[in-house]
């Protein structure tokens, strides 16, 4: 029974990792950009929500709702002002610029909020749980997982059912031809990063309410997100969700065997998948 519980907790934890990963997956899929500041942007959004909660006395979900458009705007501006300038065939400039951004963000947060670890208060929800047979599942982990499914469905809908999604796919396939058809890649990329930041904000809400975070939490979140994307296969949103679940289960099972092995077990699972299926479990893109 303990193992069923462990695996279930792992699946739910995987929902959080999938939320970390979906934004990364979206941006990479559309513009082949790997944002090394992705994890730090999640932590930044968590501090933004925390500030709205403590300064305005709002509930965490209302605060996140206010943070969503702010983060969308920031993502849009980041892409427009900085990242669009460095996109191209050379992978070096975008990597180094986002790496620089990661260091700047971490230290700006350190300066602004100190190194103390913080948590977004969520009241009774923090400890609430639902009994499912002999196992009890936390309400927050369940909400996280359901949100991950919801975000995947929403992104899937945007991608395949809207004109914006058509522009995304066209620009991803061939930006030059897409621009001949009246699509402006610079603007499409800005909107994509904006949407990725919306997903980042949702991830930040659950990161901040479920566990402590501090300014240096970001890079590890980037690594989990990246592992989930690679395990799932580039370009597949459902694959990313599955990748998150695999990392989550590997971590809880590892922790069950020896608490010191939690993080290591997740990384080992990633390396094992990379060994057997270098293109991930459900690859769609070819690059």
């Amino acid at each position: 029974m303990i193992w069923v519980d462990t695996v279930l907790q792992g699946v739910l934890l995987g929902g959080l990792y999938a939320l970390f990963a979906l934004g990364l997956s979206l941006v990479f899929g559309i513009m082949r950009l790997v944002n090394l500041a992705h994890g730090d942007l999640i932590v930044f959004a968590a501090y933004l929500i925390l500030m709205l909660v403590t300064l305005l006395g709002l509930g965490p979900f209302v605060a996140a709702l206010i943070a969503l458009p702010i983060m969308f705007g920031l993502g849009w501006a980041l892409q427009r002002v900085v990242l669009n300038r460095v996109l191209g065939t050379d992978i070096l400039p975008p990597l180094l610029v986002t790496f620089g951004l990661s260091v700047v963000l971490q230290n700006a947060l350190l300066e602004g909020f100190s190194a103390d670890s913080r948590r977004i208060p969520a009241g009774w929800l923090e400890t609430a749980s639902l009994p499912v047979g002999p196992i009890s599942l936390g309400v927050m982990p369940l909400l996280t997982f359901l949100s991950a499914i919801g975000v995947t469905l929403a992104l899937q809908f945007i991608f395949y059912r809207t004109s914006l999604g058509r522009a995304f796919r066209a620009t991803s396939d061939d930006p030059v031809t897409a621009s001949l058809m009246g699509v402006k890649p610079a603007s499409v990329f800005a909107q994509a990063t904006g949407i990725a930041m919306v997903v980042v904000t949702i991830a930040a809400l659950y990161l901040g309410t479920r566990a402590n975070f501090d300014p240096t939490t970001g890079p590890a979140r980037l690594i989990y997100a990246f592992e989930a994307v690679i395990i799932g296969g580039l370009g597949s949103l459902w694959g990313t969700l599955a990748g998150g679940v695999i990392i989550g289960v590997a971590q809880t099972v590892g922790a069950q065997i020896n608490p010191e092995w939690q993080i290591l077990a997740g990384h080992v699972a990633f390396l094992a998948v990379l060994l057997v299926r270098p293109r991930g479990l459900f690859p769609r893109a070819f690059d």
Binding site: V82, P93, V97, G100, S102, V103, V104, N107, A108, L110
Partner: peptide
């Protein structure tokens, strides 16, 4: 302290953008 790393990071970004 932290300002030092911020300056270094910002300088790295600026160099990459304006003088690769």
């Amino acid at each position: 302290g932290a300002w030092y790393l911020m300056v270094l990071g910002a300088l790295g970004i600026a160099v990459m953008l304006f003088a690769p």
